[in-house]
């Protein structure tokens, strides 16, 4: 048993062929998930029980079950239902890619909406009261006062969620998609060299994690430049 360097050098380019799919899964579901999370947040803080209650149930269900089970319900489960097969969404839900995007989006939205809510609740009441005293109406206070501060407060937690979303994209390999992990599993099945292949792939994912952290670090720094002391 030795570490086969030639195999590693041979496999890395093959696995990188899947990075496009990994990044597509990441960016598409991050964007769609953020949009859905904002809708969920607005429903949750609307103060109307018939909007808040379904949102709370949604968040409870999607945070309380494993993402793998959600992926399987959507990919293997939905085709059992006739109305799904007859619906206009069938062309998307028939494909593993569409199912993966849907599962990752629904999952991440539940987590992100809670993160955003934490940000909104963290905004100092005095600022909102000052806005009211200046004659701003509630929607304006939310857009011009609450939102910019809430984003700053939520950003560190949000960056962690993007990283866990990136890690979850690897589960797309369980529904036949050939993302980086899917390709790696194929190579291991052929060569039976788990150490070489999986460790090099872990290194690739670590680089992605590091890049996400650095980008968010840069954005955080920029967004709080008004509070940083001049050095």
């Amino acid at each position: 048993m030795s570490f086969d360097m030639a195999l590693i050098l041979d496999s890395i380019p093959k696995m990188l062929m899947g990075i496009g799919l990994t990044l597509q899964l990441l960016f598409l579901s991050a964007a769609l998930g953020l949009a859905l999370a904002i809708i969920l947040l607005l429903m949750r803080i609307s103060g109307r029980w018939y909007l808040a209650a379904p949102t709370m149930a949604y968040i409870y269900i999607f945070r309380g079950t494993p993402i793998l089970v959600q992926i399987f319900i959507i990919y293997y489960g939905l085709p059992q239902l006739e109305f799904v097969r007859d619906s206009i969404f069938w062309p998307i839900l028939r494909e593993p890619f569409g199912c993966a995007i849907l599962a990752l989006t629904l999952n991440t939205a539940a987590y992100v909406s809670e993160i955003l809510r934490g940000g909104v609740l963290g905004v100092d009441r005095g600022l909102k009261e000052a806005g009211a005293a200046l004659g701003l109406r509630a929607p304006h206070r939310f857009i011009y006062i609450t939102t910019p501060i809430a984003i700053r407060l939520a950003l560190p937690a949000y960056s962690n969620d993007v990283i866990s979303l990136m890690k979850s994209t690897a589960l797309a390999s369980t529904i036949t998609l050939l993302d980086m992990t899917g390709i790696a599993r194929t190579i291991v099945a052929e060569t039976y060299a788990p150490y070489e292949i999986f460790i090099s792939l872990m290194a690739i994912y670590l680089i992605l994690t590091w890049m996400i952290q650095r980008s968010f670090g840069w954005v955080e720094k920029r967004m709080s430049r008004h509070v940083r002391e001049e050095v």
């Binding site: 048993m1 990136m166 994209t169 788990p194 150490y195 999986f198 872990m202 994912y205 994690t209």
Partner: peptide, 26 residues
């Protein structure tokens, strides 16, 4: 902490299961 927080869970699982199997077999 850097490695295990920054890589997909499924990869760690597959590495440990198949890695230990190949080592034990050897």
């Amino acid at each position: 902490t850097v490695v295990f927080r920054g890589t997909p869970e499924i990869l760690v699982l597959l590495l440990i299961y198949f890695g230990s199997a190949i080592t034990l077999t050897a």
